[in-house]
Design a protein around this nucleic acid. Sequence first.
DNA 1: AGTTTGGGGTGACATTTGTCATGCTATCCC
DNA 2: GGGATAGCATGACAAATGTCACCCCAAACT
Lengths: 204, 204
Amino acid sequence: MVDTIRILLAEDQAMVRGALAALLTLEGDIEIVAEVGRGDEVVPAALNAKPDVALLDIEMPGCDGLTAATDLRKQLPSCRVLILTTFGRPGYLRRAMETGAVGYLLKDAPAAQLAEAVRRAMAGERVVDPALAMAALSEGNNPLTDREREVLAAATDGSSVAEIAETLALSEGTVRNYLSVAIQKTGAHNRIEAAHVAQAKGWL
Amino acid sequence: MVDTIRILLAEDQAMVRGALAALLTLEGDIEIVAEVGRGDEVVPAALNAKPDVALLDIEMPGCDGLTAATDLRKQLPSCRVLILTTFGRPGYLRRAMETGAVGYLLKDAPAAQLAEAVRRAMAGERVVDPALAMAALSEGNNPLTDREREVLAAATDGSSVAEIAETLALSEGTVRNYLSVAIQKTGAHNRIEAAHVAQAKGWL
DNA sequence: AGTTTGGGGTGACATTTGTCATGCTATCCC
DNA sequence: GGGATAGCATGACAAATGTCACCCCAAACT
């Protein structure tokens, strides 16, 4: 028997994780050597199981998949990282590439593409949806400064300016100012629309 | 060979759909007879394939899974409906039960539970997570009136009062009033928080 | 050194938002 | 019929929000 491809699977929804494992196990040349449901379990599990490819969701409890990917690249450089996510947000893709991930897959893509992507990653190829790659390039970089992002993120749940100012230790005027700038940079009319736009582009 | 359980699978993310299909197909007594990726394809596909059990996601393009479940119950009463979703929102569960669904599964649950749930649904049992059922009961009904829901839903994307008033053909004062009531009923401090609370409880 | 640039920070002012008192209609219940 | 209840609708008023002109400081040119 030829070498099987050893995979670590990180995905927070247990049923989806199990289903993906079933899907990959159907392929003869692929073997799941570790399964985790939290971002902060990725690196320990990987150091233990020594996978060839790590398949990471982005939105997970513990820590997000992009952060996990960064750590994983440092601690186990031999392991290729594939991001598998619901969100085709250009900002996510950009950050994924910056972490050294070799591929970025959408859960919207056909199931057959998954095993295919794993094999291509193993062969040293990059695996990115062309349309999404174009979008990421045409979009330019995240125009929000750190402070602006922080403030906008704190505003998404409907917090008042006073509450945001409290948690970030700023004056209310300052918070309003950052929100105002964020609103302009996103082309929105108020903080909520701004937060939605920023979310959609992966700027938060 | 004993009768296999014939399943229709409705889930919008193709990769997840394929993975779930793989998972169920591993069970000897289960057979996927139809797969769809949109809510409005559920009934046509079911009429064609005559499944024993329909496994429906809630959030899908076309029409949502709960609406699809209602139609399906009417047009093919022999088919048991199982809802499979990410969201443990009490309001969703309540509505699911009102449509005549026999079960409500969370994607957070272990993968092994899926085939189990299908068999129990086939045997005429109801399949609901006990903790979630309790939450749904203790929560009481959706306190929002139709108008309040409409207005709150229109506010989620950050629309201004003027825009909402425009689209719903109301005066601005009226829109403000509904929002105010919705804010009180949800126990929130502003429309955004209200929208989040309502979302979380499945009231929208 | 001088100057331009960009991020961080602030308070004053007009606009928008949330609350409240009020009126109208339909329905349910003696 | 008369009264109570509930949803829909509106405008007036106080509070929160968004915009603007402005200051400070550090890094990057010239």
